[in-house]
Design a protein around this nucleic acid. Structure first.
Length: 397
RNA sequence: GGGGGGAUGUCCGAGUGGUUAAAGGAGACGGGCUGUAAACCCGUUGGCUAUGCCUACGCAGGUUCGAAUCCUGCUCCCCCCA
């Protein structure tokens, strides 16, 4: 191995979990040719979040070292649903929705990746195959092999259903590697089985088998469970700056180190206090997706809301309904996407403020004159400025 | 094909005729504390302009004054045998 490839290897492995087979990645780097580095995402949800950003950041490192990324949008595998780490069968997705998601994924992925060194593929290109071809693929692994995967094993022994289709998923992913002639495939640690099976499938098809590289799983903003849309503990790369900043500030201190390591590429400044460390994390990641100015503005907004406890400078406006008095539960429910019963409960608990003053549980109907131009606040961070019906704000007198 | 077990609110899970909008837990949300968080404490957690009404325990019927609970059919899931 050359000196350069050895340095590259150390750099790439510094925050990864493992690379298999032993020494495989080093040998491939040592050959001195640009590698085809594969990464697949299934467009099952419309948003790319920071959990995806971890492998994407690693792919970017490969690109910066001169390698080519093959980004596979799993438009076809999304119809199957990767069962990795899941305990239940996934719901079937509508193909039109998958296509919409795929488009969003593509756009969001390029917030991190270098388009010049990315080959973008849809796996429907090759997975829409004849039954006979599927037979060939299905012969490359046995049921016993597939059941070795820990989540399958757990579900099977726990008496939970596993569909044959799910069993097929790792093979389809493996076939992707055959189709794109992957030299390396990247994934989270939960993907280890699938990535390794890709090697077997490649061998069965007579192409060179890939090296695999696994990255740690990023915990969600609850700090415990993996970041995922369905657990609602995610930070989407497409979210508004204030949301990204605010959500990152809610990450528990314990999880902060991982966020730094996996997303910012290094540890936090040990001399800084935890709150400063967290502010930097929130700021830098907001800046990554929205630019430094937006990040500064998000931080300023955060200070107003949570330190000074004031309404933010910019508040969304909403027209009052054309009625007098105004029924508050309906107004709150409509504006913030709650049921009216939920709105009533929030009122009863002192969670609703009008121009900073708590509204009481008995204040269900207020004269429109009290509401026009006022700021309605829900909890600590939801605000709306109320305007007269018809869309034109009446000058407050 | 035969036999057995199961399906409850966002999730897990108790409940085998009435006091059940359904115990308990998790999650979420609101309040307190704080560093913005975690931990901790308190509260809320089907809908509805609401001393009431509506909807809800896989689906459809039935028994009963009354059904998540009993009966019939159906759908789906798990296990064992073949």
């Amino acid at each position: 191995m050359t000196e350069r490839s050895s340095a590259d290897l150390d750099f790439l492995l510094r925050n990864a979990v493992e690379s298999l087979p032993e020494g495989g990645l080093g040998r491939k780097l040592g050959a001195g040719q640009p590698l085809r580095v594969k990464f697949g995402i299934d467009p099952t949800a419309p948003d790319v979040h920071l959990g995806h950003a971890v492998p994407l950041a690693k792919l970017r490192e490969f690109q910066d070292l001169g390698h080519l990324v093959v980004l596979i949008i799993g438009d076809y595998t999304a119809r199957v649903g990767d069962p990795s780490g899941r305990s239940v069968i996934r719901p079937q997705l509508d193909p039109a929705e998958i296509d919409r998601n795929a488009e969003t994924y593509r756009r969001q992925a390029f917030k991190v990746l270098d388009p010049e060194r990315t080959e973008l593929r849809l796996n429907s290109e090759w997975l829409e195959m004849a039954m006979e071809d599927l037979f060939r693929l299905a012969r490359t692994a046995t049921v016993a092999q597939l059941l070795e995967r820990d989540d399958f094993a757990r579900r099977y022994s726990g008496g939970e259903p596993i569909s044959v289709l799910e069993l097929l998923y790792p093979l389809l992913q493996g076939y992707d590697s055959v189709a794109v002639r992957a030299d390396v495939e990247l994934g989270g640690t939960d993907q280890t089985f699938n990535l390794l099976l890709g090697r077997e499938v490649q061998t069965a098809y007579g192409v060179a088998s890939q090296a695999i590289l696994t990255m740690p799983i990023l915990p969600g903003i609850d700090g415990v469970r993996r970041m995922s849309k369905s657990l609602d503990n995610y930070v989407g790369v497409d979210e508004p700056p204030a949301e990204i900043f605010g959500k990152l500030m809610r990450v528990p201190d314990d999880a902060m180190g991982l966020y730094y390591d996996l997303l910012l590429g290094g540890p936090p400044d040990p001399a800084a206090s935890p709150v400063v460390q967290k502010r930097r994390l929130a700021h830098d990641l907001t800046a990554r997706f929205h630019g430094p100015e937006a990040a500064d503005a998000a931080e300023a907004r955060f200070d107003r809301l949570h330190v000074a406890r004031e309404a933010p400078a910019e508040i969304e406006e909403a027209s009052l309904p054309d009625q007098n008095p105004v029924h508050l539960p309906a107004l709150i429910g409509d504006r913030f996407g709650l049921s009216r019963a939920q709105a009533r409960r929030l009122l009863a608990q002192g969670g609703v403020r009008l121009d900073g003053a708590v509204l009481g549980a008995d204040e269900l109907d207020l004269p429109a004159s009290r509401l026009e131009g006022a700021v309605l606040q829900l909890g600590k961070r939801r605000f709306v400025r109320l305007r007269a019906p018809g869309g034109v704000a009446r000058a407050a007198s």
